[in-house]
Structure formats: structure tokens, C-alpha cells
């Protein structure tokens, strides 16, 4: 334990308004702590610089999963355990439900929140690709009110995002219509469980008569931030899927990917495996189309 508890202040207002008022009074001064699975790791390593922390844990207004006609609203305080256990998340946002089972261990999932995962903004975060290929939106809240933006514009750079210093992440909205799409999500981690992603690829697609009418692709750990693979998508859009299209898409992905060498993997490995995963997804699509 390299951090010193006494060097920090932690308070728990116990209500959403309580937290927002605090943040409005002194924007940027209070760091929210939800499940603490990022913050407490930094604290233990003596890397937690923020002195003042405000707890979101136990605030019911942030921990909800609500299903409306077209989408699921997930409170930022919902844990990955909440997500993986929820029937409609399982059926309507199955990629997210699958990603939820990958976030560390059971003990981690019962504390780790989706809000914390997104705001922390690791390029390797497991929920990000799943949300990106479903056109998810995020809802931000402050004393000034709420606003909704596409999740694809939430991350603005390495560990930077579109929130203002007085804002909290309030909810994530996942459209249900993608349940009709063909879906793909595969994580390649350092081992089977308790593994940070070395690369992951998510995809949703609709084909009509062998032609790709809609396709969304997103990857983890291929760029400094979780991001859609627009250029790769463009190669496939409106194309009849076949070996050539698949090859070109894979090449486009290798071009578009900007991974790095780090302690967990190499850039070359990441690009190539991402391209292989894309090949796997597209071949699955092809096989599914070929079936009568």
C-alpha cells in the first residue's frame, strides 16, 4: 500500500444532487469515485494525485437499468454484474452483456461500474467496442441539466473526454434495434480470465442479398482511444461480401489501426490479429448468408 489514506479526503453526499452541487461549487476539484476499481488501484500504487474524492457508490439514482421501447437506459452506477444478470441486456444488448462477463473477476464485476469504465477511458476498456457498434449514446448531467451525445464522440483523446468539470456521466443508452443485426465480439487477452485486452473487435452488420447494407466496427487497443473503424467500414459498405472484399477490408484495417508496443503486446501483433478477427467476423457473415 503505497498511498496514504490521510492524504485524501473522501465524502459521500448520498444523493445525486448532493454530488452535483458539490461539483458545481468547485468544478474540477472533486473526483467522483464509483466502484473504485481504477481509483483504488492507483491509490495503492501511490499514483492517486487527486486529493478530494466524492463517492457515487450506493446512490440509487445512478444504479438502474430501464428498458423503454427502442432502447435500454443504463445508469452510470450500474455494475457489470448488474449488466450481465439483466435479461434485456442479455437479449437486446448481448455484446455488452458478453463484455460485462470479461471485466476482471466476479469480485471486480460486483464493484466495477459502466460509468467508471467509460470515464476512465482506457483504450483497452471492454465495454467500449460493444457500445460503439450499437450507436450508443451517453447522457451527462450537472446542476445545469442533462445532455446526450453519441458515445462515439465521448472520447476525445488518450484518457480525455467530452465532459465538463462539473459534469457526471449519468447514463448510457443502448438502442435495441441492433439485436436484429449480425453481431461479433471477441477479446484477445493475456489469458482466459482476469485479462486486459491486447486487442478486441466488435462488429454489427446487416446484409441484403449478400451485399453489406450496414456495418459498424470498433476495436479496443488499436488506437489511443476506443474508436470506430470508419475507414474499414467504408471499404465494405454497399459491397457484395466475398474473399476480395474481405481481403481489402483487412488491409484497410491494418492501415487504419494505430496500435502501440507496450508491456502487454506488440503493435504488429495487434494489427494482424485485429485483421484476423475481422476476417473471422466477415467469414461468419458469408457463411450465414450462404445458408438457405
Amino acid at each position: 500500500m503505497r498511498g496514504n489514506a490521510e492524504a485524501h479526503e473522501l465524502i459521500a453526499p448520498g444523493s445525486l444532487t448532493g454530488v452535483l452541487e458539490l461539483m458545481a461549487r468547485a468544478p474540477g476539484e472533486w473526483m467522483p469515485i464509483a466502484g473504485g476499481t481504477e481509483i483504488m488501484v492507483a491509490h495503492a500504487a501511490g499514483r492517486l494525485r487527486e486529493k478530494k474524492l466524492v463517492s457515487l457508490w450506493g446512490i440509487g439514482e445512478l444504479r438502474f437499468i430501464e428498458v423503454s421501447g427502442e432502447s435500454i437506459a443504463i445508469g452510470a452506477g450500474a455494475t457489470f454484474r448488474d449488466l450481465r444478470m439483466h435479461d434485456t441486456v442479455q437479449s437486446g444488448a448481448s455484446l455488452l452483456a458478453k463484455a460485462a462477463t470479461w471485466i476482471g473477476s466476479i469480485a471486480n464485476q460486483s464493484r466495477a461500474t459502466i460509468g467508471g469504465n467509460l470515464v476512465n477511458g482506457s483504450p483497452a476498456a471492454d465495454s467500449s467496442p460493444a457500445l460503439l457498434v450499437c450507436d450508443a449514446e451517453v447522457e451527462l448531467i450537472s446542476m445545469r441539466g442533462k445532455r446526450r451525445i453519441p458515445y462515439s464522440s465521448f472520447h476525445t483523446g488518450y484518457k480525455r473526454n467530452a465532459m465538463t468539470p462539473d459534469e457526471l456521466l449519468y447514463a448510457v443508452h443502448v438502442p435495441l434495434r441492433f439485436a436484429q443485426h449480425r453481431q461479433y465480439l471477441r477479446k484477445v487477452g493475456t489469458r482466459r480470465a482476469m485479462a486486459i485486452s491486447k486487442v478486441a473487435l466488435a462488429g454489427t452488420a446487416l446484409l441484403h442479398g449478400g451485399v453489406v447494407s450496414e456495418i459498424r466496427l470498433a476495436a479496443a487497443s488499436l488506437a489511443p482511444l476506443p474508436a470506430r473503424l470508419y475507414r474499414t467500414e467504408a471499404v465494405l459498405h454497399g459491397r457484395a461480401l466475398g474473399p476480395l472484399a474481405i481481403r481489402e477490408a483487412q488491409e484497410a484495417l491494418m492501415e487504419e489501426a494505430k496500435p502501440i508496443d507496450d508491456i502487454r503486446s506488440t503493435a504488429a501483433y495487434r494489427s494482424r490479429v485485429a485483421a484476423n478477427l475481422l476476417g473471422e467476423f466477415l467469414n461468419e457473415l458469408l457463411t450465414a448468408e450462404a445458408r438457405p
Binding site: V188, K198, I246, R247, Q250, E251, M254, S265, T266, A268, Y269, R272, V273, A275, N276, L277, L278, G279, E280, L282, N283
Partner: peptide
């Protein structure tokens, strides 16, 4: 590690095509 497997396979078949299957 997978990275090592990858590196050796790629050097060995440097002309290998990007392929999923």
C-alpha cells in the same frame, strides 16, 4: 507468448496472406 508465436510464424512465411481461416 502469442506475440512470439506470431513473430516466428510471420518471419517463416513472410509472404503469408492475411487470413482468418
Amino acid at each position: 507468448l502469442p506475440e512470439d508465436l506470431f513473430a516466428q510464424l510471420v518471419t517463416q512465411e513472410s509472404k503469408a496472406e492475411v487470413s482468418a481461416v
